[in-house]
Amino acid sequence: MLIWALIVVVGAINFAARLSFIVLFARREMPPLLARALRHVPAAMLTAIVVPAIVFAAPGELALNAGNVKLIAALVAGFVAWRWRNTLLTIAVGMGALWLLQRFVG
């Protein structure tokens, strides 16, 4: 039941955000400060999602060292993403690195 409520509410929020300036505020200009702030949303939110997923070896256990296979795999994948801008290649290299590192290190 909770999941259905979530689908409806999150779906409505996403649709409203997409409709916002195309339909809902079609006659208005975006305030400049909001426009500037929104430009940073992708980098900020992606970082907030990605970093905790790779720097903690276990919940609450920060591991910023070479023994953290997820961190090393993510650094390799991050370089691939930055250099080639290819999602599939990034995933393939990242997963490959994780599996290899786990076999030899972990």
Partner: peptide, 20 residues
């Protein structure tokens, strides 16, 4: 053991890295 959930940060990383 495949750790498929690691695909999630990798997907986001693929989008994040070119922004930097």
């Amino acid at each position: 053991s495949w750790q498929l959930e690691f695909v999630v940060p990798l997907c986001f990383l693929a989008l994040l890295a070119p922004l930097l």
